[in-house]
Nucleic acid binder design. Structure first.
Lengths: 232, 232
DNA sequence: GGTGCCAAGATTGTCGACAATTTGAGAAAG
DNA sequence: CTTTCTCAAATTGTCGACAATCTTGGCACC
């Protein structure tokens, strides 16, 4: 578990966390995504409320939000469990992700400004240099990849799509990646794929950008799936 | 407002509504979707709690769930408003819907059993007959259309996709349709489109099914958009 | 007369306690 | 020994009250 230091900045930049429920929600979400609380384990409301120094009603509220993100499952009068990461669920999530990010790409090719596109290209170059220096450190794999996808989704200018992907789906995806220990040798290949995508967007070729993104995500899924099978 | 009697059965068939929060949630959702409480209006927690004969904490819980469905928007220490139905938002939602239901169609062509497909074809025939008798009554437009899409989404056998579409997106879509008074002459055309889609699925032609569904949804959006523009 | 500040009212966020339901261990019957 | 029933302990669902925050109307000051 060498990559637990990846920040959430790129995922929630200006999101002001004011209320107590927000704090517990963010903290508990981090704990779940990074595996501090094991997948499939039951969540005791009184215990967690005490640990976070907060009322049970407040913690319950936070659990409701986690349920909306599909990070915990809840049954009436029974309780709350952290979701279990099954291969079947991984495939389901990635199918949805491919469809939505494909759409995001097509819209980005249509709606991003030239400046935004130039910024992403600059970002990729910066990451390339950093990566050369660090010689395969896993920085790019997590934060850089996240940043790239984040900007394209934002560039779609579709707020509904943005919320769906960033607030809901991406936490689940991060959970799979972190807990499977995704720090493999896919870095350089992913980089080339990113480059091809942004080039398609620059040429305002929405269809190609969509197709490349879907393929890119498909590769990414196969990568995680292999780790899954190797893990048992 | 001649079509407020459309049931929710096809959307939540066996969903047991046991707890008080569930009841308030379902009831309040219906009120919002069908326009009993105006779009954009502010929601007073004490008032609604009294009206539904329930504690404020319970009502708050229900509001949280409505927020997760994108039916209300909430700001910390300020309050809760019913979402406003803007044309921009309609387009955003329908773009997402087209991508997701397109995926559902492709998966359905791959995963539905022959029996499930036969059942949908039988359903379409039944609706065709009923429609001939009733001569353009708006029954098919709402419940029948809902049923068709519901079965295909279910037929994708992708649970995550199912939850996303049925629990979150479809309520918003229903809200647009009900409040725009969707009972136009698109019935027969929609029927033909449904027929083409199920035929493609029967032939296990996922790509065609996906394309037809995307087009079908695109038509549907244009229809609502026209009503929007005509409304002011 | 307009602008900015302040206080009172109202609304939301949080808490601890009570009620309803589930669960699990142990006793009794087969 | 297995099965079923019972009851108690624990857990979840719901409530009313208190604390923190925002809103609004009025007053002083420029």
């Amino acid at each position: 578990m060498s990559n637990q230091s990846v920040t959430n900045e790129s995922i929630e930049p200006q999101n002001q966390v004011t209320t107590a429920v927000d704090q517990v929600f963010v903290e508990l979400r981090r704990a779940i995504v990074e595996g501090d609380v094991a997948q499939g384990s039951k969540i005791s409301e009184p215990e967690l409320a005490k640990r976070y120094g907060v009322s049970r009603a407040t913690l319950r509220d936070a659990l409701n939000r986690l349920e909306a993100c599909n990070l915990v499952e809840r049954k009436a009068n029974v309780g709350c469990r952290v979701v279990a990461l099954t291969p079947e669920r991984l495939i389901e999530v990635y199918q949805v992700r491919a469809a939505l990010e494909g759409l995001a790409c097509r819209l980005a090719a249509q709606n991003m400004t030239d400046e935004e596109i130039a910024n992403i290209k600059a970002l990729l170059n910066k990451h390339l240099n950093e990566q050369r220096v660090k010689e395969g450190e896993s920085y790019y794999q997590e934060a850089g990849d996240l940043d790239f996808h984040y900007r394209i989704i934002k560039g779609s200018k579709n707020e509904h799509l943005f919320n769906l992907l960033i607030h809901d789906l991406y936490q689940l995806i991060r959970m799979y990646r972190v807990q499977m220990g995704m720090t493999g040798p896919r870095v350089s290949k992913a980089f080339d794929e990113h480059l091809a995508i942004i080039n398609a967007i620059e040429n305002r070729d929405g269809e190609l950008a969509e197709m490349l993104m879907k393929r890119h995500i498909s590769y990414s899924m196969n990568n995680i799936e292999n780790k899954f099978n190797a893990a048992q």
